[in-house]
Amino acid sequence: MLNENKGKFVTVAEVAEAMRVSKMTVYRLVHSGTLPAVRVGRSFRVPEQAVNDYLERSVYDVG
């Protein structure tokens, strides 16, 4: 049942480090539904592609 097309999952700590924000910020994004995640036991895993998509949506042109 494992789907190779789903990609890699990363931890909240890895997302926070990549985005240079606190883990609490990532948890807020997950709980608000802004950043999709899968609950595994007591922790969350975030699809790597979802992080990339979120960052692409968040970029804006200042000029």
Rank of each mutant, 00 (worst) to 15 (best):
M1Y: 15
N3W: 12
E4F: 15
K6R: 13
K6L: 10
K8Y: 11
F9A: 10
V10A: 06
A13E: 06
E14A: 13
V15N: 09
V15L: 07
A16I: 00
A16S: 04
A16V: 00
E17D: 11
E17A: 15
A18F: 02
A18D: 13
M19H: 12
V21K: 12
S22H: 12
T25S: 13
T25I: 08
T25K: 11
T25N: 11
V26Y: 01
Y27K: 09
Y27W: 13
L29Q: 14
V30C: 05
V30I: 14
H31M: 05
H31F: 06
S32P: 03
S32Q: 08
G33T: 06
G33Q: 08
G33D: 06
G33M: 05
T34R: 02
T34C: 09
T34G: 10
T34F: 10
L35I: 12
L35M: 07
L35V: 04
L35G: 03
P36T: 10
A37F: 06
R39N: 08
R39L: 01
V40N: 01
G41V: 02
R42F: 01
R42L: 02
S43F: 14
F44P: 00
R45Q: 05
R45F: 07
V46I: 08
P47Q: 02
Q49H: 07
Q49N: 05
A50N: 08
A50Y: 02
V51S: 00
V51P: 08
N52E: 05
Y54E: 08
E56I: 01
E56L: 03
R57P: 10
R57F: 12
R57D: 15
R57S: 11
S58A: 12
S58F: 07
V59D: 01
V59Q: 06
V59N: 05
V59P: 00
Y60V: 07
Y60F: 08
Y60P: 01
D61P: 00
